[in-house]
Design a protein around this nucleic acid. Structure first.
Length: 482
RNA sequence: GUGGCCAUCGUUCAAUGGUAGGACAAUGGUUUGUGGUACCAUGAAUCAGGGUUCGAUUCCCUGUGGCCACCCCA
């Protein structure tokens, strides 16, 4: 920081001097591009997840690990980078994700590769590559990591963002669709999110979709003039998207438009019917949204999104998924039905903060070690590791001056015990153990130190448990277990 | 990719065509080895690069970044 200031003022004064002396700018420009300055800034749409945010991430990680285990998922991690055509071919060349949001580049070896914009393609690739088709079905895979999309950043929308991803291979029964949604619900519920709503739709198979698309165009074409400018263009590019339009006139028009559900093939229709029955049985909060069309080509039959938000307020999409029965086959594998969903971790955390969900509480140091003088310093370092070996988390402020300032730090971090070693204690091999709650203290010899500290911590623990119990009886639920 | 708004200490909010002030946070201290409060002190910023100007942090341009809407999605 000091450095910064110095260099800035230097620059300024030299500039000034140059000007005063009548030095012409050109000389500055000519000077061999004075080493490009390092700008300490992250790239657009990329951000750091700072220590202060980690408790939220930790809670999410724990819930995901827990839930995925409960539902029999196995963790898989695939590379961030894959061949570009894995994504272009599977996600679809006319989708936004592939069209304008992929990070692509050519390696030194000449391979055309891309940063993964989503998980499914890579995991399906791994499924085939490692012959997971021989495993007992369904094969359930869970993954967590960053994905990349070159989009205009906004709140809750980043170019590098994290997804928790669940995939189930090898089962086409609608009960798996229901279970997947149930799992999604379980996860957001355990994360303490309320006001969750599932938007569900079935988009059938590509053939029936084509037919529906034709019917939709036929209907809308007749009333072309009543559509908004945007939608008129969409008529030829992506008619299904018109269903998503926010313009009043378009909403009115599309309200009477043919619905995709009516064009479903027989199998998809019955699949959808079964799914809804299961969902009703589970009493999950869902609504059928016939306008829901998802942005990837590989989806078949069931698609859904997880929304959060109050009735009146804004709604945020926290995640989504669907069935992709043809994906594995498209990739050259054996025909394998599959379903999955992804949760947008960044958005989930945003929503946790918005609704004031408690983050994970890191176990924190409850004991502070203060030391005074050279000799005490030497002793305290050894004590530190000794206590730590006995399972006592220690905080310290080695290198800090007065005892007073050390006590202040101890107090501010909420330590329950402060161990003080001064010159005298260092000589006698003793230490002062101070109970920060009561303020009492005693001098103990090293061999009894651990015992003395633990005793205080225990009494405090018991007091705390009592308090918590009293609080619990009045307001139950919420944080049942973490 | 299109349009709009914005950019000052770590955070947050001021101010100005003459190089910036407060609050919170940080650090040290208020008699030598004990926490809180209070008080005092210290360090800390005009996103970058050009231009206009005697002089720019302020005005203009470009870039970069943030936010919002569209688009899309997680």
């Amino acid at each position: 920081m000091v450095q910064k200031k110095v260099s800035v003022s230097k620059d300024r004064s030299t500039k000034k001097e140059e000007k005063k002396k009548g030095v012409v700018k050109i000389s500055v420009k000519k000077s061999p591009k004075a080493e490009e300055k390092i700008i300490p800034r992250s790239l657009r749409g990329m951000r750091d997840i700072l220590p202060e945010d980690q408790p939220y991430w930790e809670r999410v990680r724990r819930v995901l690990a827990h839930s995925s285990q409960e539902y029999g998922f196995q963790r898989i991690d695939t590379p961030l980078v894959e061949y570009e055509n894995l994504f272009t071919r599977l996600i679809g060349t006319s989708t936004d994700i592939v069209d304008k949001e992929m990070y692509t580049f050519t390696t030194r070896g000449g391979d055309k590769v891309a940063l993964r914009p989503e998980f499914t393609a890579g995991i399906a690739r791994a499924y085939i590559e490692h012959g997971m088709g021989i495993l007992p079905k369904p094969v359930k895979l869970f993954s967590l990591g960053p994905v990349y999309r070159y989009d205009r950043p906004q709140e809750g929308r980043y170019r590098e963002f994290w997804q928790g991803n669940f995939e189930l291979y090898g089962e086409d029964d609608a009960i798996l669709d229901a279970q997947t949604i149930q799992l999604a619900y379980r996860v957001v519920q355990q994360l303490g999110l309320k006001n969750i709503e599932f938007q569900i739709n079935s988009i059938g198979v590509p053939e029936s979709r084509k037919e529906y698309s034709k019917a939709l165009v036929r209907y809308l074409e007749a009333q072309r003039s009543k559509l908004c400018q945007n939608c008129r263009e969409r008529l030829s590019t992506n008619p299904m998207r018109i269903l998503d339009c926010k313009e009043d006139k378009c909403i009115q028009l599309t309200a009477q438009a043919p619905q995709s559900i009516d064009y479903l093939d027989e199998e998809s229709r019955s699949h959808f019917k079964h799914l809804l029955e299961y969902l009703d049985e589970l009493e999950l909060p869902y609504v059928i949204n016939t306008r829901l069309v998802r942005g990837l080509d590989y989806y078949t039959k069931t698609v859904f999104e997880i929304w959060s938000g109050d009735k009146d307020g804004k709604k945020y999409s926290l995640g989504g998924g669907g069935r992709y029965d043809r994906l594995v086959q498209m990739m050259g594998g054996e025909a394998t039905p599959a379903i999955g969903f992804a949760l947008g971790i960044d958005r989930v955390i945003l929503e946790m903060k918005r609704t004031q969900v408690k983050p994970y509480q890191e176990p924190r140091a409850r004991v502070f070690l203060a030391q005074l003088g050279e000799m005490a310093k030497k002793k305290s370092l050894k004590l530190f590791s000794e206590l730590e070996k006995n399972g006592i988390l220690i905080a310290e402020s080695f290198g800090r001056g007065s005892l007073k300032s050390q006590m202040r730090v101890s107090n501010r971090m909420g330590a329950e015990v402060t161990i003080i070693i001064g010159q005298k204690e260092a000589l006698d091999d003793t230490a002062i153990v101070k109970d920060m709650v009561s303020g009492t203290q005693e001098t103990v010899i090293h061999s009894r130190l651990v015992e003395a500290v633990k005793k205080i911590l225990h009494t405090n623990q018991e007091l705390k448990i009592k308090e918590v119990n009293i609080a619990r009886t009045s307001e139950n639920e919420d944080e049942k277990k973490d």
